[in-house]
Structure formats: structure tokens, C-alpha cells
Design a protein around this nucleic acid. Structure first.
Lengths: 189, 189
DNA sequence: TAAAAGCATTGCCCTATGGCAATGTTTTAA
DNA sequence: TTAAAACATTGCCATAGGGCAATGCTTTTA
């Protein structure tokens, strides 16, 4: 099992080496180029992706062509469109690599099989859901009613990596402001 | 077991009557007056609440005194501050009944004990998390970049009950707009 | 059942931010 | 290595929606 993934399980479960080796073969390594689409809106999401290196984002594009990003995943994190993975219905969002990215991916059928049969995976899944839930709630609270400057400051405080590592364009689409406004605000900090 | 709660488990698990009767005693009935605080920011959330009748909301109040509502729970739904329930840390949000409300509440220790030991409760918990996750993602996508009118129309389409049953004040705090703007928009529909 | 408190509505003004356009900079790809 | 494409910056203007205040309505409670 890849050391990053091993760490992930070790931190969240008490799974021993035997269990980890049982889980390991369900994951397969894949690579994506910079800006490659991993999933497009309308497709059914078939995999859960564990990021070894690089970065991905989940986002939508509305009818006016405006992008709206809701999640960035860096090394050592899972990324997938859970809405589609859970329901088996077509995704309404896209997944895209933002850098050259290597992942370990697991097929949804295998993943949910392990959730049902391996306590460690059940626990990890619960943990992913709980974290995602908490993060998202926090974002709703912190962003709603906050003006542009407060949002940028929030990002600086909570996820500075995003601000340093990614383009203004995608950061702005995460903050719900225009790249123009973001550029103006950065000049003021 | 209360019929509403029984239905809840029946819809989401294959738990038989025996299991339900085992779970049932962990829940106790409570009542709240209209506008009563069930949990205040800073307190640790000790219970998960299943609503039999009435309605509750989860919300924060910022330093300027502006309220920000993120969730309304009506009959047949669970409501709790999961962030605090999961972590055991003080809640940063409030829970308040908006009508005379009757609930079945379960203590967090009992709840997580059952999550670990009763497959039906594990499944229900997973389901709650998954649903909450999906709902929240959807809200982020649908609200971010949407103007006031679009938000009201969204509510009319997805959760009309909220618009009919609750005051403009709390609805506005859910939509992230002022009661003034909501009033003006309603006049135009 | 009357007084008070709390909400809803609407007019007026003001500000933050969006949108466009012009210019400069960085990245990509041949 | 260079041309093209994509992105960033900044000035200018337009506008959605916030905030306040005045008025009227509804709900609470004593």
C-alpha cells in the first residue's frame, strides 16, 4: 500500500497491516495532465480518487459560462463527486486536475463493498463524510453575509495554500467573486 | 417506538421490529415552546433531536448581530449540531424551535454507541451524513453566484414550505439577503 | 381586549462589486 | 525561441441590494 494512503488509514482507524494489504489491491494508480478533465458533468462518477501528488477541483459551469468551484483536493486527500457516487446518477459537477496529478483510484462498487465489509473502510468513509459535512457547514456560515474582503481574509487564514498555489481565476470561482475583484483586493493586502 | 421514527428507520434500513424495540428506549420525548433555544453557541451539543411536530432551525449570530440560518428541520427529520456532537467541542451555532415543537432526543453517547453496535443505526447515520452532504453541496452551488431573485425562486422550487410557513426574517437569514429585499421580491412574484 | 412589541412594507440614498476595455505579464506549444 | 493564448491588473461606469426611517399590520401578553 502506498505510504500516503497507509498514513491516511493509520490516522483514522486501528487497521493492522493485514487489513491494509487486503484493501490495497482495490486501488489502482492513474495520472492526469494539468487541466485535464477527470469527470464531466453528465457522466456518472465511477471512482473515488486518493491524491498522491498534484491537485484537483470540483466545479460547475452555469448557463452563462460562469464557473463555480466548491472543493480543492491536494495530496493526501480523497476527491470524488459523492453525489453521483452515492446515487449512481449523472454528476452535475466536473472534476479537473489543476496540476500534473497522480492518484490512486478505487471503483465505486469496490469502495462500497469495502464500506460494508471492512470496518476500517466504514470508519474512513464516515470520517470523510463527517469532515466534508463540517467543512461545508463552516463555509456556508463563513461566506454567507461576508463581503469580498472578508472572504479573501478567510481563505488566507484557513487555506492559504489555495491562494498561493492556484490561479486567481479558480480562486475567485471558489470565493464567489470575480477575478477582477480578487485582483483588486490582493493589491490592498 | 413512535410511528414517525419507525417509518424513518423502515425507509432507510431493513431493521426488524426486534431491533427497533431495542433502539427505541434510547430516545426520550421533550417539548419546546415557540422560539425557545434548544442549544446556544458555546454549549456542547449533547443530543440528536428527531422532530415529531413543529420546526427548528440552526443558525449563527455574528458580531454585528446579523443572523445566518443554515438549516430548517421539520417533522420527521433529525436536527442537531453535528459539528459539536462529533467533536465534543462547543458549538458555534444555535438551535432554536420556531414553533411549539415536540422531539425525541437521544444522547450523543447512546447515539454513537448504537452507530458502532447496531447496523441499522450505522446505516441511518451514514444516510443522514450523505443527505446532509448532498443538500449542502447543492446549496453552495445553487446560491453562489445567484442573485437575490434567483435565490427566492430556488427556495420556491426546492423548499416552498419554508417560504409559506416561516417569517420573512428567518427566511431572509437563510437566503443570505435582508428582510427588506425579500419583501420587495415577494411583491414582484 | 388594549397596549406593547415585533414584524412587514416601501421610499430614498449610498456603497460594494460586477462588467467592460485597455494594457501588461506569464504560460503554452510549435 | 517565438508567436499565440491565457491570465492579471487597473480605470471607468452601472446597478443590485444594503441600511435607515416612516408607516401600517399582527401577534403576544397582561
Amino acid at each position: 500500500m502506498h505510504p500516503l494512503l497507509r498514513d491516511y488509514f493509520r490516522k483514522r482507524t486501528d487497521a493492522d497491516e493485514h487489513v491494509l494489504e487486503k484493501i490495497s489491491p482495490y486501488f489502482e494508480e492513474r495520472s492526469f495532465k494539468r487541466n485535464e478533465y477527470v469527470l464531466r458533468e453528465g457522466e456518472v462518477c465511477k471512482h473515488n480518487y486518493f491524491i498522491i501528488s498534484g491537485c484537483m477541483r470540483l466545479f460547475t459551469i452555469n448557463k452563462e459560462g460562469v464557473e463555480n468551484t466548491r472543493y480543492f483536493a491536494f495530496e493526501g486527500k480523497f476527491a470524488t463527486c459523492f453525489t453521483s457516487l452515492i446515487s449512481g446518477l449523472p454528476a452535475f459537477e466536473n472534476i479537473q486536475s489543476l496540476e500534473k496529478t497522480t492518484v490512486l483510484r478505487i471503483h465505486r462498487d469496490d469502495f462500497y463493498y469495502l464500506v460494508e465489509t471492512e470496518a476500517a473502510v466504514n470508519k474512513v468513509y464516515r470520517n470523510i463524510m463527517e469532515s466534508a459535512y463540517i467543512t461545508t457547514q463552516r463555509r456556508i456560515y463563513d461566506f454567507q453575509g461576508a463581503d469580498s474582503l472578508e472572504r479573501v481574509q478567510w481563505l488566507l487564514k484557513h487555506q492559504p495554500t489555495i491562494l498561493n498555489r492556484l490561479s486567481n481565476k479558480v480562486v475567485a470561482s471558489y470565493l464567489g467573486i470575480t477575478p477582477y475583484t480578487l485582483s483588486r483586493l490582493k493589491a490592498k493586502l
